[in-house]
């Protein structure tokens, strides 16, 4: 395994691989488990996964790269997702995106300079009754504007 992964991370990954080795269709739950714990799916572990699950490295890469949710590099401490879907557009999400990008000084898929917040687009959070919606880590927030989101970021990420 990659020397960039800590001993603890390597142990965690190994345990997850072992636990999912014989689960039917176990690759997806395995990738989730790894990303939940260490924040991303390091490409360096593809050979270990492929060996344990009897897949080719190409197949593992294919699955990781197919799904928007999985990422292969570490990101910021917090993840802010802005909904870009129709209901939120009907309530001004485009303005919210533009303002937040400029306030944070990043575009989508980028992380703020202090490493605190990664900005991601999302297509529907199921909070369409209270558009525009954003998700900060695992919590959804409705009827947002850039001031309210900035307050949230200050409270959650810098508090």
């Amino acid at each position: 395994m990659d020397h960039l992964l800590s001993q603890e991370q390597q142990t965690l990954i190994k345990a997850h691989i072992q636990a999912h080795q014989h689960v039917p269709g176990g690759l997806m739950p395995l990738l989730h488990a790894i990303q939940d714990d260490i924040g991303y799916v390091p490409e360096i572990i593809y050979p270990d996964i492929s060996k344990a699950l009897a897949l080719s490295v190409a197949e593992v890469h294919g699955v990781v790269s197919f799904y928007h949710h999985f990422r292969t590099h570490p990101i910021g401490k917090h993840v802010l997702q802005i909904c870009r879907a129709e209901s939120c557009q009907a309530m001004g999400s485009e303005k919210l995106e533009t303002e937040l990008k400029s306030r944070l000084g990043v575009d989508y898929h980028q992380t703020t300079q202090d490493g605190k917040v990664t900005l991601l687009p999302v297509y529907c959070l199921g909070n369409c009754g209270c558009s525009p919606a954003v998700m900060l880590n695992d919590e959804v927030y409705g009827r947002m504007n850039s001031e309210k989101v900035s307050e949230l970021i200050a409270e959650v990420c810098h508090g």
Binding site: M28, V63, H68
Partner: peptide, 21 residues
Amino acid sequence: RAAGAYVCGEETSLLESLEGK
């Protein structure tokens, strides 16, 4: 858990995903 692919709401694509593909 799915992983953020809208097309997986289509039933056969969903089954592929459940199979780990």
